[in-house]
Simulated scan of single mutants.
Amino acid sequence: MRQNKVLGITGKMGSGKSTISSILAQNYGFKVIDVDKEYHILLEENEELKKKLTDVFGKEILVSGRIDRNRLRTLVTADRSRFEILNKITHAFIFERVSYLVLEVLKGCHTVIDAALLFEIGLHKLCSVVWFVEAEEDVLVERIIKRNGWSEKEIKSFLERQKILESYKNLANRVIVNNFDIEELKSVIRKYLKEDGLI
């Protein structure tokens, strides 16, 4: 199932995965699969997934007949066991969609899979190289507030749940510490792309 020239990028929310993906797309012509965006498309368009989620979490997650991501997030944030059930349902759908994109739609292209839960979903199986991106917690919080407008309490709770991601660091080919400026980040990316045989 492994594809050549497929780079997996993982790490906590706010670590800079999307920034690195953008640099790879703009400067090196990589096609980017943003797994968060693909998940949102599935929530919008996949009737089987919608039915499974409403069967489990109830009709209150719907607004005008569509799944409301904020309602769903609030519901699962309040209860860890619900969060695990949500992941169990959604991961199979996400893996199927990303596999299709990598193996069919983008076959032969240099591709990036940008996913916080890369290993948990099993998407690392599609990658030839995996980079783990991290940053200091205060940097993460600041970035997420700026981008998502969440409260600090909500962010801390979310990051706490993402602590498990640290255990995947050892499974990655590279660890990139992204506390520095964009130009320095670009030079680190170039170096690793060459060393990993991706360019």
Rank of each mutant, 00 (worst) to 15 (best):
I144Y: 00
E60G: 10
I145P: 01
V32F: 03
W131L: 08
H110W: 03
F83I: 01
F30P: 02
F119I: 04
L159G: 03
V32G: 07
I89L: 09
D196G: 04
K125C: 07
E120C: 02
L86Q: 08
K169C: 09
E60Y: 00
K191W: 01
V98A: 05
K186C: 07
I67G: 10
M1D: 00
L7R: 00
S21A: 15
G122D: 04
K12N: 08
E195V: 01
Y39P: 00
K37C: 07
N4K: 12
G65F: 03
V130C: 12
V133K: 09
L118D: 02
K51S: 13
A25V: 00
L42C: 05
T111H: 00
T10Y: 03
V32Q: 07
E48L: 14
E160V: 08
I121K: 07
V175L: 15
K169D: 11
L106E: 11
R161G: 10
E152A: 11
T10R: 02
I20P: 08
N46F: 06
E183W: 03
A135F: 03
N173A: 11
A25F: 09
V139E: 13
N170E: 15
V105R: 13
G149S: 08
G149F: 04
C109R: 14
S187L: 10
I94P: 00
A172M: 11
G65Q: 03
N148Y: 02
G108R: 00
D36L: 05
E38S: 07
I9S: 04
L198H: 03
V102P: 01
Y168E: 12
K194A: 10
